[in-house]
Amino acid sequence: EINVTSHGEEQAKHWIELAKRMNLDVEVEIHGDKIIITIK
Rank of each mutant, 00 (worst) to 15 (best):
V28L: 03
K13E: 03
V28R: 00
E27G: 04
T5R: 02
K13D: 07
V26G: 01
W15D: 08
S6G: 05
V28D: 00
L18C: 14
G32Q: 12
K13L: 09
V28M: 03
E10H: 08
V26E: 00
T5S: 05
I16Y: 06
D25Q: 12
I2V: 08
L18W: 15
V4L: 07
H7T: 08
T5L: 09
K40L: 04
M22L: 13
E1Q: 08
L24E: 01
N23E: 10
A19M: 13
N23P: 03
I16K: 04
H7V: 11
M22V: 08
E17G: 10
R21E: 15
D33Y: 08
I35A: 01
N3K: 13
K34P: 00
I30E: 01
V4I: 08
G32V: 11
G8D: 12
D25I: 14
H7F: 13
S6M: 12
I39S: 01
E17S: 06
I36W: 02
L18Q: 04
G32L: 13
I35N: 00
I37G: 00
I37V: 03
E27F: 10
V4T: 05
K13A: 07
E9F: 14
G32S: 11
N3Q: 12
E29G: 02
V28Y: 02
A12T: 08
Q11V: 10
E9I: 14
K40D: 02
S6T: 12
I2R: 02
K40I: 03
W15S: 07
I16R: 03
A19S: 05
I16M: 05
M22E: 09
L24S: 01
N23F: 15
G8M: 12
V4M: 05
I37Q: 00
V4P: 04
T38I: 11
A12P: 05
W15G: 03
E29A: 09
H31S: 04
E9Y: 14
E27V: 12
I30Q: 02
H14P: 05
V26C: 03
T5E: 07
E17M: 05
E10W: 13
N3G: 06
T5M: 05
L24G: 01
I35Q: 01
D33Q: 05
A12M: 12
A19W: 14
E27P: 00
V28F: 03
L24T: 01
A12Q: 04
E9C: 15
E17V: 13
T38C: 14
E10L: 07
K20E: 15
H7L: 10
T38E: 02
I30C: 12
H31P: 00
D33M: 11
N3S: 09
D25N: 08
A19P: 13
K34D: 02
W15E: 05
I36A: 01
V4D: 04
V26W: 06
